[in-house]
């Protein structure tokens, strides 16, 4: 048996908020910040996906750079001087969160996002009242290079009806911040299925199948890895969606039990999320050497038999 020692990496020295930091070569500024316990908000970053640095909420100020740089994607270099809490950084983070909050439903994006919104002083209301939601399919039909000229009385949003076209998950694109994570997970970062992609342009970009066909007509294999990486609740299981719609979603009651998938011999770790003695979701830890957080349809959705108990038991 061989033991993987990893590659030997030189240490790079940089300054973060006045402190000398030494991190292995190839690390990102975000890694350096985290090594210093400096909290850095992230939305489109995930440890198991290629950084796309699209959301820009993790920006930091790098001395000598004209603009702020995305910490999630910028590799460290010797002698870098980084500021993570300058006025420019705080302004950009606040604005990114505010622009998202004014155009996307962030209410299921988790406690961190709620806290960052407070911390950076987000005021989404100052862009005016949100515009009425788009009709089903309307955003899918928008044409690049053309848009209706606004009068400014309302703030444009991506609000639209939830897409429910299969038994396993829903796509609630009114919550989509276009972080590209689901596309990456569906593509070369995990599943290599390529059922979904980014289409359109500008504010009208959307995650979609070809010609916006329903998921059952697309290449989707229902691995649910897109759900696994979605940070805002835009993609979620039908079970979670239905419980939320019925007002029975109860995260306070949730327990997480780790087990190993019994469907095949690969040995994927599963985390069973249980509310009121019912499995509501299945995930896998991103740092697990086998799954890197990704599962297949059986591991993620094949749990019904576990709770298929006789009536009254």
């Amino acid at each position: 048996m061989t033991v993987d020692l990893g590659t030997i990496r030189r240490l790079v020295e940089l300054t973060v908020d006045g402190e000398q930091v030494r991190v292995p070569e190839g690390s990102t500024i975000l890694d350096a910040c985290r090594a210093q316990d400096i909290e850095t908000p992230t939305l489109c970053y995930a440890p198991n996906l290629t950084p796309v640095n699209a959301c820009r909420v993790c920006v930091v100020e790098l001395e000598g750079a004209r603009t702020l740089v995305p910490s999630c994607a910028r590799p460290v270099e010797d002698g870098m001087v980084v500021h993570t809490d300058s006025e420019r950084v705080r302004h950009s983070r606040k604005m990114v969160l505010e622009l998202l909050d004014s155009s996307v439903d962030l209410s299921q994006s988790g406690e961190d996002v709620d806290r960052w919104k407070d911390q950076y002083g987000v005021d989404a209301g100052r862009y005016g009242p949100p515009a009425a939601p788009a009709a089903a399919g309307e955003r899918d039909a928008r044409h690049a290079g053309h848009h209706e000229i606004p009068d400014g009385s309302t703030a444009a949003t991506v609000a639209q009806p939830v897409k429910e076209d299969n038994d396993l998950y829903v796509r609630d694109y009114g919550r989509c911040i276009m972080c590209y994570k689901c596309v990456e997970a569906c593509g070369t970062d995990a599943q290599n299925t390529f059922a979904i992609a980014v289409a359109g342009r500008g504010f009208d970009t959307r995650i979609t199948t070809e010609f916006a066909v329903e998921l059952p007509d697309s290449a989707c294999v229902y691995c649910g890895n897109c759900i696994g990486v979605c940070p805002t609740g835009a993609l979620k299981s039908v079970s979670e969606h239905e419980l939320r719609e019925a007002g029975q979603w109860d995260p306070d009651d949730e327990t997480v039990t780790t087990t190993i998938c019994s469907f095949c011999g690969v040995g994927c770790n599963l985390e069973l999320h249980v509310q009121h003695n019912q499995i509501v979701n299945v995930t896998s830890p991103t740092d697990h050497s086998v799954t890197h957080g990704h599962l297949c349809i059986k591991g993620r959705f094949g749990f019904q038999h576990v709770q298929n108990l006789p009536e009254g038991s």
Partner: peptide, 13 residues
């Protein structure tokens, strides 16, 4: 607004 590629939040929104 028409020509933004839509990739990053500051420009898209």
């Amino acid at each position: 607004r028409d020509e933004s590629c839509g990739q990053c939040v500051p420009c898209r929104v």
